[in-house]
Design a protein around this nucleic acid. Structure first.
Lengths: 244, 244
DNA sequence: GAGATTTAATTGTCAGACAAATGAAAAGTG
DNA sequence: CACTTTTCATTTGTCTGACAATTAAATCTC
C-alpha cells in the first residue's frame, strides 16, 4: 500500500537483529530453552558491537521471548511463554489500546459481553464448585454498603474472571483476560448508585444461579441483560455530563 | 503467594527503569505524544549510564509504547498504540502461546469457534457488501483444485477475518485476530483431502449465504458445524498417526 | 572422596567517543 | 524585506574498552 518513497527507512540495527532472532523463535528454528550464542558471539555474527546486541536482546526480553542468566553457564535462553506472562501483556496492551484510541464505551462494552457470552455455555457445563464459590463471594462483597466504587469494580472483574475461568479453556481465559480487565478503567468512571448496585447484584446472583443449575440459556439471558444495563448506565452518565 | 526467600531478586536496572516509565504511561501521567527527557537527562535522573537508559527505552519500544526520532527536536515520544500494532503483538503472542505450551488442537479450536460465534450475530447484522465480497472471493479460491494446503489455510484465515471484521467492532477484531491467526500453524498440519475441502467450501458457502441474508441463526448453525467438522478432521489425523 | 578454593565464562554496568540525522538559528543574497 | 543557504546545536545510533557481579566447573587440600 505504501509508495516506496514514503517511510521505508531501514530500521535500527538492534531492531533488525531482534527481528531476526524473533523470526527464528516463532518459526521454531530456536526451540524452548535453547541457548542463544553469547553476546560476544552474536556481535561477531551480526558484525555489530555488544551494546547493539544487548539492545536487541532487551527488546526480546520485553516480549518475554527470552530470559537471561548470568554466570559461567549463563546466557540468553528461549523462554517458554507462560499463560501468566501472556495475560499480563494482553492486559497492558488492551488497556492502552482502549485508553489511547478513544474507544467509546459502547464499542468496548459490546466486545466484552459478546466474548463473555461465548464463554457462558461452556462455563455452565463445566464450572467447578470452586469457581461458583468465588462468584458467590464476590456477589456478597458487592452487596456490602461500605464498598467503594473502585472496590465494587474490582470485585466485578473478579466475578467475571471466575465466570470465564469456568469454561476451563486456558486459551479462552487468556483471550478474555484482556477484554475484561481492560474495561475496568472505563467502568471506574461510573459512580455506582445504591440503586444500580442493587440491580447489578441481582443480575450477578441470577447469573450464578444459572451456572449452579448448569442452565446455559438462563446464563446467556442474564449476561445479555447485564450488557444492556451497563450500556444504559453509561448512557445516563454521558447525558448527565453533557447537561452539566 | 511466593515466600520472600524464593526468587525475589531485584530486576536489572534497565528493567526497573522501563517499568517505572511504563507505569507512568499506563497511569496516564505521560500522555500520548509527550516527549520523554533525553537519554542524557534520564541517565542523570535515574543515576545510571546512558547505555542502561537505552536498554530500558528499547524494552518500551519493543512493546510499541514509545517511538524515537533522531535530530535536534528528536527524542523518545509516547506512542499512540494503533490497532495495527496491537494486532501484530497479539498474533505473535498467541502463536507462541499455542506452540510452546502443547495446547491441544481441541482446546484451541474450541476457543476459536466460541469467539467467532460471538461475532456472528453482529456480523450478520452489520456486514458490508465489501466484506461479503471478500468472503465469496476466498470461497472461490478454496474451490480451486490446484491450491496448496498452505494456500487453502491462508485463504481460510482471510475468510474468517472478513467474517470477524463484519461485526464492525475494532475491539472484537483485535481480540479475534490472535485467536484466528494463531490457529493457522495448527491447521497447516492438516492435509486437506479433496473430500474435506469440498465439505469446508460447502460450509463456507452456506455461511456466506447466511450473512448475505442477515440470518444470525443460520450463520451460527454453520459455524457450529464447521467447528465440529474441524475437530473431527483433526481427530482422524491423530488416529491415523497413532496407527502408523 | 568431601569440602574449600580458584578460575573461566557470561551478563550487567559504566565512561567516553564519534557518526548521523534534523530542525532551528544565523548568515548570505537578491 | 523576503527568500535561500549555511552553520550549528541537540539528540539518537553505534562503537570501543573496561570493570563488576554472578555462577558453574575445575582444581586443590585434607
Amino acid at each position: 500500500m505504501k509508495s516506496e518513497s514514503e517511510e521505508k527507512r531501514p530500521a535500527d540495527l538492534s531492531a533488525q537483529i531482534a527481528g531476526s532472532i524473533r523470526d527464528a523463535i516463532v518459526s521454531g528454528a530456536l526451540i524452548v530453552d535453547a541457548r542463544l550464542p553469547s553476546e560476544a558471539e552474536l556481535s561477531e555474527q551480526f558484525n555489530v558491537s555488544r551494546p547493539t546486541v544487548r539492545e536487541a536482546l532487551k527488546r526480546l526480553a520485553a516480549q518475554s521471548l527470552i530470559r537471561t542468566q548470568r554466570g559461567a553457564t549463563g546466557g540468553a535462553f528461549v523462554n517458554r511463554l507462560s499463560y501468566e506472562e501472556a495475560y499480563g501483556q494482553q492486559i497492558t496492551t488492551s488497556t492502552l489500546l482502549l485508553s489511547m484510541n478513544d474507544v467509546d464505551f459502547a464499542t468496548a462494552c459490546e466486545a466484552r459481553f459478546a466474548l463473555e457470552r461465548a464463554c457462558a455455555p461452556l462455563a455452565a457445563e463445566r464450572r467447578s464448585a470452586d469457581q461458583l464459590a468465588t462468584m458467590r463471594t464476590e456477589v456478597y462483597r458487592q452487596a456490602q454498603p461500605g464498598l467503594s466504587d473502585e472496590g465494587f469494580c474490582a470485585s466485578d472483574v473478579a466475578f467475571h474472571r471466575a465466570l470465564v475461568d469456568g469454561a476451563h479453556n486456558p486459551v479462552l481465559s487468556y483471550q478474555l483476560a484482556g477484554a475484561v480487565e481492560a474495561m475496568q478503567p472505563l467502568m471506574n468512571m461510573i459512580t455506582f448508585t445504591a440503586r444500580s448496585r442493587e440491580v447489578i447484584v441481582g443480575l450477578h446472583t441470577r447469573l450464578a444461579d444459572a451456572l449452579e443449575a448448569r442452565d446455559a440459556t438462563a446464563a446467556d439471558q442474564q449476561l445479555a441483560q447485564l450488557a444492556e444495563y451497563t450500556a444504559e448506565l453509561f448512557d445516563k452518565l454521558r447525558r448527565a455530563r453533557q447537561g452539566a
